[in-house]
Amino acid sequence: MGLYFYFYLFKWGNLMRKYFELKCYFNEKVQSYIFGFLLSIFLTIIPFFIEKNHIFSYEINRLIILLCAFFQIIVHFVYFLHLNNTSKNYWYLISLLFVLIIMFIVISGSIWIMFNLQHHTMV
């Protein structure tokens, strides 16, 4: 038992040592990109795995896929675009909000026009 525990600690120590060597090798910006990339890969694999294996019902699968998509958008904003709540990024957040409002207006207006055209052509 003691020998097994020693090998386990030795293996864990080597892994932690390699992690800290890599952490010291990369600067903070590269670490942010690597972590964001790994997180986005993870958030992409989850919906594929769930949909391929049909683990849950259709409604729960759809909810999980939408949640993964939402969190992936947030991961991209935070880790790749570096949009966080610092005073330096204030205007970036304002312009992002403006773009989201314009996209909402264009998409909802297009859907409204299409439903209105369908209603007038069916009557």
Rank of each mutant, 00 (worst) to 15 (best):
Thr121Ala: 03
Cys68Ile: 02
Lys52Met: 12
Ile113Asn: 04
Ile105Thr: 04
Ser110Phe: 07
Pro47Met: 04
Cys68Val: 03
Val30Trp: 00
Ile60Asp: 00
Gln72Ile: 03
Trp91Phe: 00
Ile73Gly: 10
Val123Phe: 03
Phe98Met: 14
Thr121Gly: 05
His82Tyr: 00
Ser95Gly: 08
Pro47Phe: 02
Pro47Asn: 02
Lys88Ile: 15
Phe104Lys: 03
Gln72Arg: 06
Gln31Glu: 10
Tyr33Phe: 05
Tyr90Asp: 11
Thr121His: 05
Ile73Cys: 09
Phe37Met: 15
Val75Ser: 05
Ile45Phe: 12
Leu93Tyr: 00
Asn14Val: 00
Ser40Ala: 11
Phe115Glu: 08
Gln31Pro: 03
Phe42Glu: 09
Met103Gln: 07
Gln72Asp: 11
Leu97Pro: 12
Tyr19Gln: 00
Met122Arg: 07
His120Pro: 00
Phe70Lys: 05
Ile65Gln: 13
Glu51Ala: 11
Phe35Leu: 15
Lys52Ala: 12
Leu97Ser: 13
Ser57Gly: 12
Phe35Glu: 15
Ile55Asn: 14
Ile74Gln: 03
Ile50Gln: 07
Leu81Thr: 05
Ile50Gly: 11
Phe56Tyr: 08
Asn27Gly: 07
Phe7Ile: 07
Ser95Tyr: 09
His76Phe: 05
Thr86Asp: 15
Trp12Tyr: 01
Ile105Cys: 01
Ser57Val: 00
Gly109Arg: 07
Tyr6Trp: 10
Thr44Ile: 00
Met122Asn: 14
Asn85Lys: 13
Ser32Asp: 08
Ile64Ala: 04
Phe48Ala: 13
Arg17His: 08
Phe48Leu: 12
Ile41Ala: 13
Phe98Cys: 15
Ile50Glu: 09
Pro47Gln: 06
Gly13Arg: 03
Leu38Gly: 15
Phe42Pro: 08
Leu22Gly: 09
Trp91Arg: 08
Met122Ala: 13
Phe26Ile: 01
Asn116His: 10
Ser95Cys: 08
Leu67Gly: 11
Tyr33Glu: 04
Tyr19Cys: 06
Gly109Thr: 05
Ile60Gly: 00
Met1Trp: 05
Phe49Ile: 10
Phe37Gln: 14
Val78Met: 03
Phe42Arg: 08
Met16Lys: 11
Phe71Ser: 07
Trp12Leu: 01
Asn85Trp: 11
Lys11Ser: 06
Leu38Pro: 13
Ser108Val: 07
Leu39Trp: 04
Lys18Trp: 04
His76Trp: 03
Glu21Asn: 01
Lys29Met: 00
Leu100Lys: 02
Ile64Tyr: 02
Trp112Ile: 09
Tyr58Cys: 14
Lys18Asn: 10
Leu117Asp: 14
